[in-house]
Design a protein around this nucleic acid. Structure first.
Length: 911
RNA sequence: GGGUGAUUAGCUCAGUUGGUUUAGAGCGCUGCUUUGACAGAGCAGAGGUCACAGGUUCGAGUCCUGUAUCGCUCACCA
């Protein structure tokens, strides 16, 4: 025997992965088969494999491998996302360590560094996916910033701009006055700090005896006020609505308006509106068409617009204006107050809300098509309930225009040009075009100045949001904007597998872009197959730790994915990931440490590894048998035949279940079903049934039958656990080149005899009954027992099934099993169905213990019968329930009563 | 506060349109088993009033309403 007693995944996995690549099994070209297409959610180039990747890529791989075995043209397109913010931050950090500042080296040099970095580290995560077994078509690997995909970004930008659906507008952004840059929301850290709430009185214009008191934390911004707002139903202020009040110190008149945004209970119930310096005030200002007065400079000082304290820093100004307000009698009250203040992650400066010019995509039309796609069922969500979240994001009340500009360098630069002599932020001409030359031509025409040169233009500094490139992914990975040949074949893709956290950022936007551009690019294909980018979306849960936090590197709470692969093998990890991952439910992977000090997460992978080992040892058993060309004795032949027939039925039954589960994407259930079939039915029962006595040979037909079964099981399991199945496939018999498990065709279920399966289940109950008696009476396995079956038509029929009786004798280690009417003098009884079986004991029966056992069982059935009787005594049930259900209950009652009778008889015998 | 999901065995979770015995799995636990494929194993066992309260129904873990607890998510009070 050359096979080691344990399955060792390491060499086996790399061996077969390389083999599959050599055979180009994962490569796809359009042909006349039905396509099954999946595009990977491109991981960040900066990424390293974490649990979330392992989960959703395992699922994608299972679907792709299954489709491949189903004879479809399976195509899984891998790739990476340039992830502008994350990557730029990483490269900036790296350069800083070398003493290089981004601003010193300029855009070109910075991008060169960034690309070098990407070349060096960008592929790591894809190599890690290979270790997991991902059967991607690596020849198709794409990157969101490669030329073709970038060209697509520029093209759709120009297209939308031409249609007037991209515009430049003001937006409140997080401004870092120290770094003089816009921050993304993620770069702002909020914390509670002490502050003061100023109550200021604004006198009524023309009647200083009246006025209104507002509360503010930022008295230095009152010069930027454009209104005072109160709640429309606030009785205190009804008489003031519509009147004008004067801003203290500068006496500018502003209106009092009514808006439901105002909380009556907070502060004084009156709110100053300062659109330039507050997010919400800006929104209110928009609603009422109020002007915007910006009184701050880009480094946080008061400007000329403020009229007073010009040139003072905002915090100095706050102190000074307090004094001024006190002196002028406008400061009514000052209270201490805890509030949340946002600071820049990097400079720690208090972030200033600031209006800046940004680029936007109009969302109304897009949102409508995206909602319709899912509402109509053209795109199906698994699980369905995610529709609610999707709907609430995208409905007209909530959808907001998409700000697509980012103040970064790493990304696709916005294809807009300005006249170089116009001041930044105040450009009056904008030329949007695919290339600088086209922009120049536009500029010459629009300005009527044919002598303009390229140097007279200045390109927009900002790049587009990363999602503005990844929303084209299902089209652009097939170079769909350049040539439609592949797109026509592969589009729409079959299913998208991703986490629900990016439902809005990515999933919804891909749907939008699909419906926007696919109809124009591939009209015929869209007519036949639809415009959606994918037919289904499988939302995986978030992988969280035991505190239910998302796993992330910054928290350091993610288990080392590669270490898991090393310890348990890819198949073990795939099993572990899947076994607790129902679609959409978050999975807690880093569960509390158990008693034995082992993490539960590892336990799941351990179970997967043990499963590999179990199959491996089943293989060793079969390979260890000597083969005999002689037919075995009749009884053995009968048992073998019975076992074989049973397994064929059972296999088809299992297959039918698994087929249904695949259709519903119930992958973990499908895996569990196969697990139980292989471990319990095949290993624990079938192999034990046919196993020759020690040292004896096995007959060839039975061996062949077993190998054939094993082979089919490997085919069924291959999508889930590709490596161990491939290895066993090849260990089972010599294979011609190209005969590999990975491409073996997935069988379709045929009919099966449920009755036959049921008979075997009864026989297994007899065996279990005998084992129980052994356990309770301390009888050794080797001790052959005599068992008697009560003579009834049912037991007659059961034991008459060919081979069943000798099978039970073998499995339960019996001397014999006989049907009899006679009293068994020293027999311990157990029930199988309604039939009594007796195990004859040599020694005296422990009457007390036996009574207890029977009594307990009796009580159970008495309770059971009572509940059934209650049901049947209920008029309404008998008349209301379908006859089928009532009959079932009657049968249950009869069975229960029979069991009670039998148990009472046995108790009676014990005296 | 809005939205959304969860609450089933010690732990992690299934339970698919309400009706196969008064609910299942894996791990853990308890007992037994060790020259015989596998101790990364085998056999058996214990363990749950399905969060709580109502309601609909002949029948509810499953549907409805409310409550509690926990989570996620969006918006956050000048």
């Amino acid at each position: 025997m050359s096979l080691s007693t344990r399955y060792t995944p390491q060499e086996i996995e790399s061996k077969w992965y390389q083999h599959w690549l050599d055979q180009r099994y994962f490569h796809s070209e359009p042909d006349d088969r039905e396509p099954f297409t999946v595009v990977i959610p491109p991981p960040n180039v900066t990424g390293v494999l974490h649990m979330g990747h392992m989960l959703n890529n395992t699922i994608q791989d299972i679907l792709i491998r299954k489709a491949r075995q189903d004879g479809k043209n399976a195509c899984w397109v891998p790739g990476t996302d340039h992830a502008s913010i994350a990557t730029e931050a990483k490269v900036v950090h790296l350069l800083r360590e070398q003493g290089i500042r981004k601003s010193d080296i300029g855009r070109e040099a910075f991008l060169q560094h960034a690309f070098e970095w990407k070349e060096k580290y960008g592929g790591i995560i894809l190599d890690q996916l290979k270790r997991l077994g991902a059967s991607c078509d690596w020849q198709r690997t794409r990157f969101t910033m490669e030329p073709s995909l970038s060209a697509a970004v520029v093209r759709v930008f120009v297209d939308l701009h031409r249609q007037g659906r991209i515009y430049r507008g003001l937006r409140m952004t997080n401004w870092d006055p120290e770094a003089k840059t816009v921050l993304s929301n993620e770069e702002v850290i909020y914390g509670e700090e002490n502050a003061q709430l100023f109550h200021l009185r604004y006198p009524l214009e023309g009647d200083p005896s009246q006025g209104i008191v507002i509360a503010t934390q930022r008295p230095e911004t009152i010069m930027a006020d454009v209104a005072v707002a109160v709640h429309p139903e606030d009785e205190r202020y009804q008489h003031l609505i519509g009147k004008m009040v004067l801003i203290p110190l500068i006496d500018r008149a502003i209106p009092i308006i009514a808006d439901e945004y105002v909380e009556r209970d907070f502060g004084t119930g009156a709110l100053k509106i300062t659109p330039a310096h507050d997010q919400n005030d800006y929104a209110i200002g928009q609603r009422y068409n109020l002007p915007v007065i910006d009184i701050l400079t880009e480094d946080g000082k008061l400007n000329e617009q403020a009229q007073i304290l010009v040139g003072e820093d905002r915090f100095i100004a706050r102190k000074k204006i307090r004094k001024l307000l006190e002196e002028s009698g406008h400061l009514i009250k000052l209270e201490d107050y805890r509030t949340k203040i946002g600071r820049s992650e990097r400079t720690k400066a208090v972030v200033e809300p600031r209006l800046t010019l940004q680029w936007f995509v109009e969302m109304k039309q897009f949102a409508h098509s995206a909602l319709e796609a899912v509402r109509s069922g053209e795109v199906v969500f698994y699980p369905e309930h995610f529709w609610n979240m999707y709907n609430s994001w995208l409905n007209e009340d909530n959808v907001r225009d998409w700000c697509i500009s980012r103040q970064l360098w790493w990304g696709q630069r916005i294809p807009a040009w300005y006249l170089a002599n116009e001041k930044m932020g105040e450009e009056s001409h904008i030329f949007v075009a695919d290339t600088a030359d086209e922009a120049l031509a536009q500029a010459q025409e629009k300005t009527g100045n044919p002598t303009l040169e390229i140097t007279d233009l200045r390109q927009e500094e900002d790049v587009v949001d990363t999602w503005f490139s990844s929303w084209l992914w299902p089209i652009s990975v097939f170079d769909g904007f350049q040539s439609q040949k592949e797109l026509e074949y592969y589009y729409p893709t079959s299913v998208l597998v991703t986490g629900w956290d990016i439902m809005f950022f990515w999933v919804a936007r891909m749907i939008m872009s699909g419906y926007e551009w696919a109809p124009a690019l591939i009209p015929e294909a869209v007519k036949a197959k639809g415009a959606m980018p994918f037919k289904g979306v499988y939302f995986t849960g978030m992988v969280r730790d035991n505190l239910r936090r998302k796993m992330s590197k910054s928290l350091g709470n993610s288990p080392d994915a590669l270490a898991l692969l090393d310890n348990y093998g890819a198949d073990g990890v795939r099993f572990g990931m899947l076994s607790s991952a129902a679609a959409g439910n978050d999975i807690i992977f880093d569960a509390p440490i158990g008693k034995d000090g082992v993490l539960n997460e590892s336990k799941l992978c351990e179970q997967g590894r043990n499963f590999c080992n179990k199959m491996w040892n089943a293989l060793r058993l079969i390979k260890g048998w000597e083969v005999s060309e002689q037919a075995p004795d009749t009884e053995t032949a009968q048992v073998n035949q019975l076992a074989a027939t049973w397994m064929e039925h059972k296999l088809n039954q299992t297959l039918a279940q698994v087929e249904g589960m695949f259709i519903d994407y119930r992958l973990s259930e499908a895996l569990m079903t196969l697990y139980k079939f292989i471990w319990d039915d095949f290993c624990s029962w079938y192999l034990e049934m046919i196993k020759p006595t020690y040292g004896a040979p096995i007959d060839r037909p039975t061996l062949q039958q077993s190998i054939s079964l094993f082979e089919r099981m490997m085919t069924l399991l291959q999508p889930f656990m590709p490596f161990v199945t491939e290895e066993i496939w090849h260990q089972l018999s010599e294979r011609a080149a190209g005969n590999d498990c990975v491409i073996s065709s997935y069988p379709k279920s045929t009919s099966f005899d449920a009755n036959f399966i049921e008979n075997i289940e009864r026989a297994k109950d007899i065996v279990a009954g005998v084992r129980d008696v052994r356990n309770n009476n301390g009888l050794k396995q080797k001790e052959l027992l005599r068992v008697f079956a009560q003579d009834t038509p049912t037991s007659q029929a059961l034991l008459a099934v060919d081979g069943l009786l000798p099978m039970v004798v073998k499995m339960a280690s019996l001397e014999f099993l006989q049907i009899t009417n006679a009293e068994i003098s020293n027999g311990v009884a157990f029930l199988v169905g309604n039939e009594k079986y007796y195990v004859e004991l040599e020694k005296a029966i422990d009457v007390v213990e036996e009574r207890q056992r029977l009594q307990k069982e009796l009580e159970y059935y008495q309770g059971f019968v009572k509940s059934v009787q209650n049901k049947l005594n209920n008029e309404k049930f008998v008349s209301g329930a379908p006859a089928e259900v009532v009959n079932k209950e009657k049968q249950k009652l009869a069975d229960g009563e029979m069991k009670i009778k039998n148990l009472e008889e046995e108790l009676g015998k014990l005296g």
